[in-house]
C-alpha cells in the first residue's frame, strides 16, 4: 500500500444546488489509486449527482475537485474523459442503433486522431489506426464477456449484455478511474456474480473503480472502502464492515430519524 495510498480523485467541500435544493453539500472524499470505492445511500441521496459532477455533466457550485493532482472545475465531459475518467449510466445509454462493436469503437475516439483527411484518403497511418481500433474493441467485447456476433445492434443485446457493453465502451477510453452507476441494477444472481468477477479483473489491471450500487452484498464483497451519502451529505466512510455497523447509516437506511423520504428527482440523471 505504498503507491496505492496516493489519492487519484479528491473532492473537498463539494456542493451542488438545483434551485433551493442542495443535492450535495460539503461532500469530501478521496479515492486511492487502485481501489474499488463504493458509494451508497438511499434513493435521492445525491449519488448520481456526485457522479455527474465528477464526470463533468454537472458543474459544481462549491468546493474543489482534483483528479491525479490537477484541479478540474468547470470542465466539459469530453475533457474529463480524456484525462481518464470514464463512466456508465444508471439508465443504460448505449448507441442503440449502432453495433456492439461500433459502440466500443466510439470509446476509442478519445485515444485516436484520424480526421477528415485520414478518413478520405485512408493513408497508411489511418488504416493502421482503424485496424487497431477494431482489434481493441473486439478484445474488450471478449473481455467483458459478450459472446454474440459483434455486429449485433446494441439495442438487440440482452439487458445484462447491455450493461457489460457499457463497461466495455467505458474501458475503451483507457480510463484511470472507471465510474459505474448501478451496474448490477436489474441483474440476476448469476449475472451479478460474473459482474463481480469482471470488476475484480478490471481492478487487477490497475484501473480504479468508483461504484454506485444498491446491492449491499456486492458492495460488501467487492469494495475496499465505502462512503454513504444521505440528503447530499456524506454520513459515513470506511471499510465495508465498519460502515455496515455505523448507527447513522442504519438510521438512514431504516429510517431511524423522522425524515420524510426525499421527493426530489436528482437520481433521474441527466435527462433533459
Amino acid at each position: 500500500m505504498t503507491a496505492a495510498n496516493k489519492a487519484l480523485l479528491e473532492l473537498s467541500g463539494v456542493g451542488k444546488h438545483f434551485g433551493g435544493l442542495a443535492a450535495l453539500s460539503d461532500v469530501s472524499l478521496h479515492i486511492r489509486r487502485g481501489e474499488i470505492y463504493g458509494l451508497i445511500g438511499p434513493n435521492g441521496a445525491g449519488k448520481t449527482t456526485l457522479f455527474n459532477v465528477v464526470t463533468g455533466l454537472y458543474q459544481l457550485d462549491e468546493g474543489t475537485f482534483t483528479f491525479d493532482g490537477v484541479a478540474y472545475a468547470h470542465c466539459k465531459p469530453h475533457v474529463l474523459a480524456e484525462v481518464g475518467i470514464a463512466r456508465t449510466f444508471q439508465n443504460i445509454r448505449l448507441f442503440a442503433n449502432m453495433s456492439a462493436l461500433e459502440n466500443v469503437m466510439v470509446g476509442r475516439h478519445v485515444r485516436t486522431r484520424t480526421g477528415i483527411w485520414g478518413a478520405l484518403t485512408r493513408h497508411a497511418a489511418a488504416r493502421n489506426e482503424e485496424r487497431a481500433i477494431t482489434q481493441r474493441a473486439r478484445e474488450l467485447l471478449r473481455y467483458v464477456g459478450i459472446e454474440r456476433p459483434h455486429q449485433t445492434l446494441a439495442k438487440h443485446l440482452s439487458y445484462g449484455e447491455q450493461r457489460r457493453l457499457e463497461i466495455a465502451r467505458a474501458l475503451a477510453t483507457e480510463p484511470a478511474l472507471l465510474a459505474l452507476d448501478e451496474p448490477a441494477a436489474g441483474m440476476n444472481a448469476t449475472e451479478t456474480e460474473s459482474l463481480k468477477a469482471l470488476l475484480q479483473t478490471v481492478r487487477a489491471s490497475g484501473i480504479t473503480v468508483l461504484l454506485i450500487e444498491h446491492d449491499v452484498k456486492l458492495i460488501m464483497g467487492l469494495c475496499d472502502r465505502v462512503a454513504v451519502l444521505d440528503y447530499g451529505k456524506k454520513i459515513a466512510e470506511g471499510v465495508p464492515e465498519e460502515v455496515r455497523r455505523n448507527p447513522a447509516v442504519i438510521a438512514a437506511y431504516l429510517g431511524g430519524e423522522p425524515a420524510s423520504p426525499s421527493s426530489s428527482g436528482e437520481e433521474v440523471g441527466v435527462e433533459e
Binding site: G56, P77, N97, V106, H109, T112, A119, L120, I133, R169
Partner: peptide
Amino acid sequence: RLEDSRIGRAWMAIREDEVAAEAMGINT
C-alpha cells in the same frame, strides 16, 4: 469513406445519444 471512419462513428454516436457521446470523450 466518412461513414466508416472515426469521424462518422462520432457523428452517429451524437445522433444516438449526445450525452453518452460526450461522456465517451467526443468533443460534440
